[in-house]
Design a protein around this nucleic acid. Structure first.
Length: 956
RNA sequence: GCCCCGGUAGCCCAAUUGGCAGAGGCAACGGCCUCAAAAUCCGUACGGUGUGGGUUCGAGUCCCACCCGGGGCACCA
């Protein structure tokens, strides 16, 4: 049983012992006090939240952000607040060390999880969302987080999503000028593009004069440049969710990351965002971000930039364009492979081969994703019957189709170079295609394969990939023979391609445009209407928000998860009263049809940090002065600082979704002049996860972990049936959550905060053990007792000065704790505070000169208790902005120091020397030590190594 | 298969970046208190750093190979 609940004996306890009950009392009291005194409200330099006087005190601004939660129906578990507490401790520390801190919390309340919860419980998502937000608010407040409550936002609040829609309109009304900024490219207002067309400064796509295009044609011309556009595109249709989803939301095995339903590739008319235009900037600007390398790598991989060449081959069906990163290998190209879905396949297929081609395409379509991605499977394909001309060799080479070539990457067509590409090699071997050697592999390569060097590829065990001298690689005006590096071979070939018009150097990306529309209910409606010509118009800014219509039929139409041929049906489309709307868009009152899609979950989180800066501004999404103050580039720190939030803390799972989308939106807003920062998050920190034991029964189902019984033989049962234990991320899906409410009840919030911070570094995942929490509970009890008389509740300390020992430990602790908290290493800071407190415990009474700094240093982690103690120490004001203790350098140094003496690397003795003793003196002292002398045993040392203040090593 | 992290006491974690392996917490054990127990308090013990090699006067720390755990990517031409 937990101590605090052992009520039978509670009477024996001193009345003012720090117990859970006392913690509850003082914690709720202080939370109330902070609210009343607006302790954590932070002023802006201008606008509605301005208080210039409060700003003008020489403090540095600091914007710290948590990844905001979506309020699920289960409420918090103790794993959730790990990051929140980490940032809270950090911001509290920073407030005490001269910073103006912007720190608040909002809710990511739109989206699938909220909607699914509502559908499951048969209640309107607005109701369930509101209720869940209330629960979260209470639970977070109980943790004592120092948020500015005025800045809290909720993405499903019309006053918030008004601006989400506004940003969408900005993106819709923008195009990407690739030539701007010396080829870096920049978004510009669509009006500037129209002006260029009108002035004839820019040719239209089909070369006709702008004025000769009719309204529909003009609209179409503009639409192909918009950063947000509607297009027929291959999309991921998920019947089980009843909506399309983005590439980033599809798992590696072809299922939805929400719900784990099958996802099918289909061509559909959907909203897309031209994130691909930003691919280079999204990669290049990673350089100036202070982010974990792992996340940067994930983003680079996701964007997947690969420089290569496009080359056109003549074929009976016209030109076939292929993409390759190895332009140097065309002399070895002995076939062409198209993706089975390639548009030219039909016209390239000759009569005799048609049945095989049709059958193969059918086969590929039916192949399961798990099979398709199995790269151990033999390469398959069929011949189309047609030949293309290799422009390098002038030879005819067969055109095949094979499913190892993907339509979604490059041009969906490749040249088969079997001698230099393992996939092509395997394919050629399978179908008896020529393998022409074009490089002389190095001798070591043959040695590795235990064979004599040869150019007879029949005997090669695999393709050779890498640098090597070229052979058989000369033709008309292009001669690679003699060149030895791939790099050079590619460069020379690219020059030839461009000179002859056969192709050109290019870059392809794995990144696709962002599929932005969803056929669900709980999200931001598009601020778009269509006229009778079906031309899309942005709803004017002054008519925003386009409010999400209230309806009881909010459930999306979902389908059999495997019903590939079903079609999405948006819930908003059923509301004909809402869909039909009369508007004056400058041409008088007309009837328009609203777009019935909603935005994806990610829209609201793409820009929330901006709204935190200026949450109540009704004129702009964020006042430019305010944005510059909180998020402007800190060129005072380093010249290439991109601006953005100073510290962003959250889980690694958003590496390529939220973090990529948010960067994209931010860059568009920057380009259009709305924000001064070039990146949203200057520094990113990934907190670890709290893991907990989870238990599976025979069926593999997870059972409620708290009800599992452990037996002496190490086995576990649930409800009398055997279950098996594993460790996993705490949460709903593994049924292993522990609620913070239980911890408040047993120990109080300060203890929970201390425990979560003390068990390990913030970025480390670690298992939760409820029984460990008592350690920090004992610590705060001890600390409390060191300052407070448990019988009277009165302060019990002494004005007597501390001894030198105590004082030295105090200043060392101050020095260390400052350093560690600043580096987000709360675990080691706490360890040193415990150490100091343990030292104080041994004293007969606690000196005031230790008590005060101890309380101040612990305050960031255990703010409630420390405020209470601070008050009892006679201070009237909150310690929130009281200066953090400073170490006195004089007490950091000892006069003498004990250093180890090794003989041949083995520890033999210790000697005490003056800190400033010179090497000779230290050496002499070490050699004179009896234990050392015994170890040396009369031999004369070869060398004596003295490391200042560290150790002595006598080498014989 | 490839690319990142990480393996230190029974458990969670420190270790001034190459210099005495242990700061802190849990658990364990002993003691005080108690009729007894719980809680509090006081005290004690515990491993040579996943494995094998190498560099060095000296390796938890650097290098090489491997094993285990976690994460990401995976026919990307």
């Amino acid at each position: 049983m937990c101590p605090a609940h052992d009520t039978e004996h509670v009477d024996d306890e001193p009345p003012f012992r720090y117990t859970a009950a006392l913690a509850l009392d003082l914690e709720t009291r202080w939370q109330h006090w902070w609210d009343e005194h607006a302790t954590y409200e932070t002023p802006n330099p201008s606008g509605p939240l301005a208080d210039p006087e409060a700003l003008d005190n020489g403090r540095t601004k600091l914007f710290v952000l948590d990844m905001f939660p979506y309020p699920s129906g289960e409420g918090l578990h103790v794993g959730h607040p790990l990051g929140f507490i980490g940032t809270d401790v950090y911001t509290r520390f920073k407030r005490m060390t001269g910073h103006h801190v912007l720190y608040t919390m909002g809710f990511d309340a739109f989206g699938l999880p909220a909607e699914q919860f509502a559908v499951q419980t048969g209640q309107h998502p607005r109701l369930t969302t509101e209720r869940n937000v209330t629960t979260y608010r209470q639970q977070l407040r109980r943790l004592g987080l120092g948020h500015d409550p005025r800045r809290a936002i909720n993405t499903s609040d019309p006053r918030y999503y008004r601006w989400t829609q506004w940003i969408f309109s900005q993106i819709f009304n923008a195009w990407f000028d690739r030539d701007a900024d010396d080829g870096r490219g920049r978004a510009r207002p669509i009006g500037e593009l129209i002006a260029m067309f009108e002035a004839g400064d820019r040719p239209t796509s089909d070369g006709r004069k702008w004025s000769r295009l009719n309204a529909t044609e003009q609209a179409a011309e503009i639409d192909i440049h918009r950063l947000a556009y509607v297009a027929d595109a291959p999309v991921n249709w998920c019947p089980g969710l009843g909506t399309v989803v983005a590439n980033e939301e599809v798992t590696a095995d072809g299922r939805s990351d929400r719900g784990n339903f099958p996802v099918f590739q289909r061509t559909m008319r959907q909203w897309m965002m031209r994130i691909t235009e930003y691919a280079d900037r999204l990669i290049d600007d990673l350089e100036v971000l202070d982010w974990p390398d792992s996340i940067k790598t994930m983003q680079r991989n996701w964007i997947g930039r690969s420089p290569g060449s496009r080359v056109r081959f003549d074929s009976p069906a016209g030109e076939v364009e292929v993409f390759t990163t190895r332009a140097d290998t065309f002399f070895g190209a002995t076939f062409i492979v198209l993706a089975p879905e390639h548009p030219l396949v039909a016209s390239l297929t000759t009569g005799p081969h048609a049945p095989a081609v049709v059958e193969y395409k059918q086969e590929v379509r039916q192949r399961k994703d798990s099979e398709r991605t199995d790269d151990t499977r033999a390469k398959t394909g069929v011949f189309t019957g047609s030949y293309a001309v290799n422009p390098f060799t002038r030879k005819e080479i067969p055109i095949w189709i094979a499913d190892y070539v993907l339509m979604g990457y490059g041009t969906g067509a490749i040249t088969g170079v079997p001698c230099g590409d393992q996939r092509d090699f395997e394919f050629a071997r399978n179908y008896g295609l020529d393998i022409v050697p074009i490089q002389q592999p190095p001798d070591e390569w043959f040695e590795q394969h235990r064979m004599e060097p040869t150019l007879d590829t029949e005997r090669w065990p695999e393709a050779y990939v890498g640098d090597a001298p070229y052979v058989n690689s000369s033709g008309k005006k292009l001669d690679l023979n003699g060149i030895e590096s791939v790099r050079q071979g590619v460069d020379v070939t690219n020059e030839w391609l461009e000179a002859t018009g056969h192709g050109e150097a290019t870059v392809t990306y794995k990144l696709r445009d962002w599929l932005f529309s969803r056929q669900r209910y709980w999200g931001e409606p598009f601020p778009i209407v269509y006229d009778d010509m079906d031309i899309a118009h942005a709803v004017p800014d002054e008519m925003l928000p386009v409010e999400l219509p209230d309806t009881e039929s909010f459930s999306p139409r979902t389908f059999d998860p495997d019903d590939e041929n079903s079609d999405p049906e948006s819930p908003l489309g059923r509301l004909s009263d809402w869909v039909e709307v009369e508007l004056d868009l400058g041409q008088g009152l007309r009837t328009y049809r609203r777009d019935t899609n909603i935005m994806p979950q990610w829209a609201g989180s793409c820009w929330y940090e901006l709204r935190y800066c200026d949450p109540t501004n009704d004129d702009v999404l964020v006042d430019p002065d305010v944005e510059r103050f909180w998020m402007g580039p800190r060129t005072d720190l380093r010249p290439d600082h991109p601006g953005g939030v100073d510290l962003y803390v959250g889980g690694v799972e958003h590496a390529v979704l939220h973090l990529l989308y948010a960067r994209f939106w931010h860059k568009v807003l920057h380009d259009l002049g709305h924000v001064s920062s070039m990146e949203p998050y200057a520094r990113l920190f990934n907190q670890g996860y709290i893991l907990a034991a989870a238990y599976q029964d025979e069926r593999g189902m997870y059972v409620e972990a708290s009800e599992v019984e452990r037996h002496d033989d190490g086995t576990y049962t649930f409800d009398g049936r055997p279950v098996w234990r594993e460790m996993g991320k705490m949460g709903k899906s593994l049924h292993n959550g522990v609620s913070p409410d239980e911890m408040y009840e047993q120990y109080g919030a300060d203890t929970l905060r201390l425990h979560l911070m003390a068990t390990g570094p913030l970025d480390a995942s670690r298992p939760w053990e409820t029984r460990d929490v008592v350690g920090m509970y004992r610590f705060v009890q001890r600390l409390w007792r060191n300052l407070i008389d448990e019988e009277t509740g009165e302060l019990s300390i002494t004005d007597e000065p501390a001894t030198d020992d105590t004082r030295r430990l105090l200043h060392r602790t101050i020095d260390f704790v400052r350093q560690e908290m600043d580096a987000l290493r709360m675990n080691t800071a706490i360890a040193k505070l415990v150490e100091l407190n343990n030292h104080v415990t041994k004293l007969t009474s606690t000196p005031l000169e230790v008590a005060e700094p101890l309380v101040l240093m612990l305050a960031p982690v255990a703010p409630h208790m420390c405020e209470e103690l601070w008050r009892k120490l006679g201070h009237e004001h909150t310690l929130t902005r009281h200066p953090f203790p400073e170490a006195d350098q004089a007490w950091l140094l000892d006069d003498t120091i004990e250093i180890p003496v090794q003989v041949n690397g083995k520890l033999r003795s210790r000697v005490t020397v003056a800190v400033d003793a010179d090497h000779a003196a230290v050496e002499q002292l070490a050699l004179a030590d009896p234990k050392v002398a015994a170890a040396i045993d009369g031999a004369s040392p070869k060398k004596v190594i003295v490391v200042d203040g560290r150790m002595v090593n006598v080498v014989l």
